[in-house]
């Protein structure tokens, strides 16, 4: 249920603007990898190119190669919707479907895949909601609108929706940045449990969060505004935060450089 993600020489553009350049990195299965770095350094762009969400924007494109377990996800013959089912994504702001109930939100992905049988959907919804630590809070009001939950609950609902289709990899783009500390803690706890089953890659602006939840950390940076983002250092989280090998990483971690 978890796959290895490898990027080699990944370069991504928005039209003529080169957002990231020559990113090389391998993420091991069943680990949490944090992408950190200053604003505009391309962390989110890189994250979005892993499940081919980058190319959704007009004019955006990706070069280089990205594989999950040696399968090229940018190969001509690959079905892009299958890539996105295999590599799920949780967004910065909780985005449950506003017109759907809690239950419908969780099973939305399954329904897209043609699952119609009520018993299967019920079971999958409960399983996903339990995995997202949300079941006890919502089990009595599954028919209520998903958008009526609190921000933290909505984000866990979105995580439930993502893992309900049983992806191999889960990408999270600053999943806690819109949440309060308690909800953040709940999501971080959740990440610990989820990495038993999934490969998790998370973009975060919160370095303590990176230090708390991740096994490996990748530090991205740019020379100056307008330059493409580059991967500066990629290592075990402990090493990055205690004894980074690149000066720039150290400056960033200690707050001498933004």
């Amino acid at each position: 249920m978890a796959k290895r993600v490898s990027a080699s020489n990944v370069t991504a553009y928005y039209g003529a603007f080169k957002a990231i350049e020559n990113i090389n990195l391998t993420v091991e299965p069943k680990t949490v990898t944090a992408l950190i770095g200053p604003s505009g350094c391309g962390k989110s762009t890189f994250l979005r190119s892993i499940n081919r969400m980058h190319e959704v924007l007009p004019g955006a494109r990706v070069e280089g190669s990205l594989t999950i377990d040696d399968q090229d996800i940018y190969h001509r013959d690959v079905d892009v919707t299958a890539v996105r089912r295999t590599i799920g994504m949780v967004f910065q702001r909780p985005n449950p479907f506003p017109t759907m109930s809690i239950f419908e939100n969780v099973v939305a992905g399954l329904k897209l895949n043609g699952v119609r049988k009520k018993s299967i959907l019920d079971e999958a919804a409960e399983k996903a909601l339990r995995s997202a630590n949300l079941w006890d809070e919502v089990k009595d009001r599954l028919g209520k609108p998903g958008a009526g939950l609190s921000g933290g609950q909505q984000q866990r609902l979105c995580i439930a929706r993502t893992i309900a289709v049983e992806p191999q990899v889960v990408l999270m783009d600053e999943p806690c940045s819109a949440l309060d500390p308690i909800s953040t803690l709940a999501i971080e706890d959740l990440m610990f449990q989820l990495k038993d089953k999934f490969t998790i890659i998370i973009v975060t602006h919160n370095m303590q969060q990176a230090a708390r939840v991740s096994d490996r950390t990748a530090f991205f940076s740019i020379e100056k505004t307008g330059d493409p983002g580059r991967l500066i250092e990629y290592d075990n989280t402990q090493k990055i935060f205690s004894n980074p090998s690149v000066k720039k990483t150290e400056d960033y971690i200690t707050g001498r450089f933004g």
Binding site: S44, Q92, E174, S177, A178, L179, D180, G255
Partner: peptide, 28 residues
């Protein structure tokens, strides 16, 4: 959605807020 950090929201997460100009060490 590119690199749009929600700075004010970050402040509430109980962790470090990393800005261009902060003069105090991480954790404050």
């Amino acid at each position: 959605m590119g690199e749009t950090p929600h700075r004010s929201a970050d402040a509430g997460t109980g962790g470090t807020r990393v800005t261009q100009s902060h003069a105090w060490p991480a954790g404050a």
